[in-house]
Amino acid sequence: MNAKIADRIATAVFVLIALLLVFILVGLVGYLMWRGLPHISWHFLTSPPAFSEAGGGIGPQLFNSIYVLFLTMLLTVPIGVGGGIFLAEYAGDGWLTRFLRSAIEVLSSLPSIVVGLFGLLVFVQYTGWGYTILGGALALMLFNLPLMVRTSEEAIRSVPRDQKEASLALGVSHWRTITSVLLPSALPGIVTGAILTAGRAFGEAAALMFTAGMSSSRVDFTDWNPFSPLSPLNPMRSGETLAVNIWKVSSEGLVPDAREIAAGASALLVIVVLVFNLLARFLSRWLYKKMTASSS
């Protein structure tokens, strides 16, 4: 077979693979939208689920998902970026670093259900909190930390070495060099890591079933004091998220419109993740411009 034909075949194969990927994505998202969109309405988004009759919504679940995500990111991003800075800038090449790296690798390959069961033991039973949003966020933090650490480390390492040397050679300390040269340049990469993390957190069910619980406690959306037991912001209440709700409704739902609710919630989940992606990308570009362009 001559080189030209081989080249053509290879090109055709790669184009086919690319088309297949696009087809799967479009097909999947299209199907979800086709099934779910007709069911999404303002009423569906804001009202609580019904017990046995049709017409219930997913309002509290949607709120819980966003709240769990918020708490998770609040915990994951600072610790993850800190870990990334440590590995990229301070950890040498000793046995401790190698041990740390393999620990992170093992942690990142743990199945989420195992993380969920660990969360059940520690954040639910050992602490005596019961099912709480905070416990769910902590479990998700464990689940997402390795990814966040690794993407931050890579983002910092990918900043050209001469930028760092230029700053150090001006008599700027290592720490100030990190905060004023390395982190701004690494920011787009770090935000990408945070998006990946957030997407995983938003769609995660297994790690949350046994930590944040499978029921949403009664909440009063007019009470925003985080210490009041009925407040939606109280992190010590149980809070079923959207992804957990999809699993519950489709496996043991009693309402007659369980399938429609699951379809609507799935479509919503995909839309929120997409919107979140776009927003974060926009934010990253905006932040990069703001931190690197002129100061006045």
């Binding site: 040397e165 700053s167 050679a169 008599g171 362009a293």
Partner: peptide, 22 residues
């Protein structure tokens, strides 16, 4: 810090920061 302030360095490849000239 004092040493590197008073003994400055220019590198092989121009390496401005991705900031404004100012």
């Amino acid at each position: 810090i004092e040493i590197r302030k008073r003994i400055g360095m220019v590198f092989q490849r121009p390496n401005p920061f991705p900031l404004s000239i100012y």
